[in-house]
């Protein structure tokens, strides 16, 4: 049985999907479920309860924030820490994300080791 903590990663860029998965699985020891859209994230959420949500802001069908708001009412999702990994995020958007309970906003480009460290810190503090 796979006991690794699950991270639900919502990102539409294929390269980043793969690179983040490799970083989190190989450097962090996590299991990553990857969704390329908000709708796909909701489908995956029906079958697993992740320990952390890692979202991009710009997604093809709905924004990352809308995705997060759609995930929150699902059973077991209300308290899951949410982290955004985004290319463009001004202070107003960041304030909106923080107000929605997002615990960390990380910027692209990112360093894989720093991403893993940030997630580890959040999960250890959770």
């Amino acid at each position: 049985m796979d006991t690794r903590p699950i991270i639900l990663h919502v990102e539409d860029d294929r390269s980043l999907q793969n690179l983040v998965r490799i970083a989190l699985e190989q450097l962090g020891g996590y299991r990553v479920l990857t969704a390329g859209s908000g709708a796909r994230a909701l489908e995956l959420a029906a079958g697993a309860t992740p320990r952390l949500l890692l979202l991009d802001l710009d997604l093809p069908d709905m924004s990352g924030l809308q995705t997060l708001r759609s995930l929150r009412p699902l059973p077991g999702f209300a308290q899951i820490p949410a982290v955004f990994l985004t290319a463009a995020c001004g202070p107003q958007v960041e304030a909106e994300l923080r107000a929605a309970g997002v615990v960390e906003v990380l910027r692209k480009p990112f360093r894989p080791r720093e991403l893993v460290q940030a997630i580890r810190r959040i999960l250890e503090g959770a």
């Binding site: 860029d13 390269s15 980043l16 690179l19 463009a88 910027r107 692209k108 480009p109 360093r111």
Partner: peptide, 12 residues
């Protein structure tokens, strides 16, 4: 930033 993130992540 999106492709640059992939370049840096891949090389690291």
């Amino acid at each position: 930033r999106t492709p640059l993130a992939s370049v840096i992540a891949a090389l690291e």
